[in-house]
Nucleic acid binder design. Sequence first.
DNA 1: GGCGAACCGTACCGTACGGTACGCAATTTC
DNA 2: GAAATTGCGTACCGTACGGTACGGTTCGCC
Lengths: 214, 214
Amino acid sequence: MQVVEQGGEGAAAGLTERQGAVLERALGLLVEGGEKALTTAGVARAANCSKESLYKWFGDRDGLLSAMIAYQAGKVRTVEAGAGALSAASLRRHLTVFARDLIDVLSGEVSLALNRLAIGQASREGAKLGRLLQERGRRQIGRRATALLEAGRKAGLIAFDDAEEAYGTLYGLIVSDMHLRMLLGEDRGALKKEFSPRAEKAVDAFLTLYGVES
Amino acid sequence: MQVVEQGGEGAAAGLTERQGAVLERALGLLVEGGEKALTTAGVARAANCSKESLYKWFGDRDGLLSAMIAYQAGKVRTVEAGAGALSAASLRRHLTVFARDLIDVLSGEVSLALNRLAIGQASREGAKLGRLLQERGRRQIGRRATALLEAGRKAGLIAFDDAEEAYGTLYGLIVSDMHLRMLLGEDRGALKKEFSPRAEKAVDAFLTLYGVES
DNA sequence: GGCGAACCGTACCGTACGGTACGCAATTTC
DNA sequence: GAAATTGCGTACCGTACGGTACGGTTCGCC
C-alpha cells in the first residue's frame, strides 16, 4: 500500500491513488444516477475493483459515502484573497468574484449530487453526512467570506456588528432560492444563467446595506 | 366509495376521507424515519389498510408519494392579505408577518420531510416530485408575496422593475441558508430560534433597498 | 526463486422491498 | 334476504441490495 501524502488531485487523509480513483468513479456514478445508482456492486464494477476491497478500505457503505464527501471536499481549496490594502473598488471586485465562485460551487454537478445524498440521509443516523458536508463545505467558503468582510471593515469601507450575520445576508442576496431549486431538479444551466447576472446586483445591494459613506 | 367533495381537512382531488387518513399516516411515517421508513407494507400497517388498497388507490409507490405531496399542499391555503390602503407602517407589518409565516412553513416538520423526499428523487425520473413540490408550494407562497409587493408599489412605498426579482431578494434576506441547513439535518428548533429575530432585520434591509424616500 | 500480501472476479447468503393473489368479513344494493 | 362491492389480513413471488467467502493472479520483498 503506497500511501500518497500529496497526490495529484488533493488526496486527503491517507488515501492511495487507487482509492482516490475509486472514489472518483463513485462520484461519477452518483452524479449520473443519484443515490439509488450507487450500489456497492456498481461501484466495484465501474472502478474495476472488488467489493471485498471496498469493504476493506471503507468499512461499509456509509464509510464509502463519507469518504466520497471528504475526498471531494479535499479537492476544493479556498483561495486566499491577497490581504493587501482594500479600496472601495477592490472590495467590490473581491465580493463579486466571491459571488461568482459561490454560484459556481453551488451549481456544480458533484456538489449538487453530494448535497442530495446528504439530505436524503439526514432523517436517519443523526445526519452524519449532513454535518460532514456542512463542516467541510460551508464552513470553508464561509471563512473566506468572513475574512474578506473583516478586511473590508478594517479598511473602514463597511460596518457591521457580527461578521457571521453579515455573511448570512450576503449569502442570501446572492443565492436566494437558487440552490434549493437546483436541488429539486430544476435545470442547472438555466438557473445558473439566470442567477449569474444577479451576482453584481447582490454585491451592490450588500454594499448599500453595509457600506459606510465615504 | 363515498367521494367527499369537501372533507374536513382540505381533501383535494376526489379523495375519500379514508384515503386522506392513510396519506396522513404516511406523512407521519415519512417525518419519523425518512424515505427509507416509507415502505408500502409499513404504510399499510400504520394505516390499518391493505397493500392491495394502496395500489388500487394510488397506482404504485410513486403515485403514493405524489398523492402525499398534493395532499399536504392542499392543506396550506395562502391567506389573502387585505388589499386595503397601505401605509409605510402597514406595509412593514405585512412584510414582517410574511417573513414569519415563510420561516414557519419552511421549518415545518412535514415540509422538511417532503422536501427531502423530493430532493432525493430529483436525480431520476425527471424530478417529477420536485416540480410538483415547486408548483404547489413555492409558487403559492410566491404569489402572495408578489401581490403584497405590487400593492406596495402601487401605494408608492417601494419601487422595483421586476416583482419576481424583488421577491427573490426578500426571500434571500429572510431565509439565507437556513432552509438548506435544516434540510441537512441541523436542529429545527435551534435554527428557527436563530432566524426568527432576523425576520424584522430582513424586512428592514429590504425596505432600505427598495423603499422610496417619503 | 520462493513467500506473502494485496486484490480482482465471481459466487453466495440473508434480508427486505415492490407488487400481486387469495380468502374472508363487512357493508351496501336491489 | 341474497348478491355484489369493498377492503382487510396474510401469504407469496421475483428481484436487488449489503455484506461475506473463496479461488486465482499479480506484484513487491527477502
